[in-house]
């Protein structure tokens, strides 16, 4: 059976265009080319430098953000493809001036050193609880998409366990 592929092609342009994103609950518009990654849009165009660029290749996890609540790598996401999705970055974790419990737990457990992977770790750690993968024997595997070169891993696990237990105890 032959399928007739007759629909008119979409217009595609490599020129800068206006892209409307929702970042941390706020609508923003920026003029960017299609090749701009979500990561670079956040860092270079929106001034949201909390999201980090460690490899730009999907191998380190420093650029982890949420798209519609699910954790993704912003270095491998085109900003233009982020239209229509709710993007959340580390800057959106706080509730008013109040630290998210995971942020507080990271400080309390010394779950970072240089701090460069930390925003990505936090975005994964909070997502992990949502995903229901925070059992003692799951945390390490489900946090393995975020490299910490300072190797604060045991402390990161401690912080996650604390937040998990506090949430479960309420």
């Amino acid at each position: 059976m032959a399928i007739h592929v007759g629909s008119p092609p979409l217009e595609g342009t490599s020129k800068a265009r206006t892209v409307a994103l929702t970042v941390n609950g706020e609508g923003v518009e920026l003029r960017i080319e299609p090749r701009v990654s979500l990561l670079d849009a956040l860092r270079e165009h929106l001034g949201l430098t909390g999201t980090k660029k460690g490899c730009d290749q999907g191998t380190c996890g420093a650029c982890t953000v949420w798209s519609d609540g699910r954790r993704v790598l912003s270095c491998l996401t085109l900003a233009v493809a982020g239209e229509g999705h709710e993007i959340t970055t580390v800057e959106g974790l706080q509730d008013g001036g109040e630290l998210h419990p995971m942020q507080a737990a990271f400080i309390a457990h010394d779950a970072f050193q240089c701090g460069y992977c930390t925003p990505g770790q936090l975005m994964s750690a909070v997502a992990l609880l949502e995903e229901g993968r925070a059992a003692d024997d799951e945390i390490a595997e489900w946090m393995s998409g975020n490299i910490c070169r300072c190797a604060a891993y045991p402390n990161i696990r401690d912080a996650i366990r604390e937040v998990r237990d506090a949430a479960g105890g309420e």
Binding site: G50, V90, E91, I107, D110, G115
Partner: peptide, 20 residues
């Protein structure tokens, strides 16, 4: 606890490639 902890967990710490 680290004196720069808050900046690091909120993403407000600016590294060398993040100066506008």
């Amino acid at each position: 606890v680290r004196v720069d902890g808050r900046e690091k967990v909120t993403g407000s710490a600016r590294y060398s490639g993040e100066i506008a």
